[in-house]
C-alpha cells in the first residue's frame, strides 16, 4: 500500500491509523485569463485571471468577479495555457530593431510651416 495514503502511527502502545486525504487525486480547476470590453467602441482589455473548470464557468465567474460594478459589456475568457507569450530575453531582437526606423513616423519629414492640413 502506498504510504501516501496510509500512515500507520504507533504511539506508546496505542495504534492510530491515519488515512491521509489523497489530495493528488483531485485535479485543480485551471487558470483562465479574462478580457473585458468596458463599453462598445473600446477594445477588450486584460482584467485579470481566475479559476474555472470549463469555459462556461469561466464566463460566469468572470461576470461575478470582474463586472460587479458595471465594468463591462462583453467578456472573453481564454485558458491561460493557450496563451503563447514572447520571451523577455528576446526583447532585444524582437523590439529594438524598430527603434531606429524613425522614417515610419510623420515627424521624420521636414516640411515648411506654411503647408497646412498635412
Amino acid at each position: 500500500m502506498n504510504q501516501d495514503f496510509l500512515v500507520l502511527c504507533l504511539e506508546s502502545g496505542s495504534v492510530a491509523v491515519l488515512i491521509q486525504k489523497h489530495t493528488n487525486m483531485s485535479k485543480n480547476w485551471p487558470l483562465w485569463e479574462i478580457f473585458v470590453r468596458s463599453k462598445n467602441g473600446l477594445e477588450h482589455r486584460h482584467f485579470g485571471s481566475l479559476h474555472a473548470a470549463d469555459a462556461d464557468m469561466a464566463l460566469e465567474n468572470a461576470r461575478d468577479v470582474y463586472t460587479r460594478r458595471s465594468e463591462g459589456v462583453s467578456i472573453w475568457v481564454v485558458e491561460s495555457k493557450n496563451i503563447t507569450a514572447s520571451n523577455p530575453e528576446h526583447n532585444g531582437e524582437l523590439f529594438e530593431p524598430a527603434q531606429d526606423k524613425v522614417y515610419r513616423h510623420p515627424t521624420f519629414y521636414d516640411l515648411p510651416d506654411e503647408v497646412k492640413h498635412m
Binding site: S26, K27, N28, W29, A53, D54, M57
Partner: peptide, 8 residues
C-alpha cells in the same frame, strides 16, 4: 470542485 472538473 472534483465534480466540476469531471463534468468539464
Amino acid at each position: 470542485r472534483d465534480a466540476a472538473m469531471a463534468y468539464a
